[in-house]
Amino acid sequence: MFTEKAIEILKELKRSETIPPYNSTTISKTIEEICALYTEYYETVTENKTLKTTPYFLAHTYVFHSSAARNKRCILAYLMERSKRIREFRWNSGGGLLSVNLKENMSQDELDYFNDYDKLLNEYHTNVGLDLTIDTEQPPKELFIEVRVLKELGQVVLNSGGTVNLHLNTTHFLRRSDVGGLISQGVLEHII
């Protein structure tokens, strides 16, 4: 049966919660399948010009055409779902940084897409004057929070202009908006 491979990548995507490795081999195989299906029914139709509307040939045409359309739909849905997850990741991580793992799992086009989307979102946040990706769980009570450093970072310039020495296992009392991004990256830990 046709379209089996295309269904397989959708199932693979559905099993995973994050962004699984981009399955370029299956995609190119599916595209080859679409071409083969098309050639086959195109030849059948052109060879039997007078008979092509009889049920005998019509069934053949419909099966091949539907299979090709189905393959296309599967690939598009696969790419669509992945691009959705990439956007979600940008909103959740609160920054334009990808881990090495994710980078390996994405295709070149997806990486470009992520970078462009990141740029777009940053531009928007600058224009609005507010980063919409932080403090989404609950409105903050205090302007300053206490944080502990989990990864050695050295001297860092903060968004608000000041500099701070983030050495391993030291604690700091800093402006919430400055460190939100670092916390979601796992560099700092919020202490209550």
Partner: peptide
């Protein structure tokens, strides 16, 4: 629905079909 993975997988479910005519080169089904 076109891009909905659940919708696509739901359409994978099988239905028994009886062909009403001979069909050209469809023995592979």
């Amino acid at each position: 629905d076109y891009f909905d993975i659940d919708d696509i997988l739901a359409e994978e479910e099988k239905i028994p079909c009886t062909f009403q005519h001979d069909a050209y080169h469809l023995g592979l089904l």
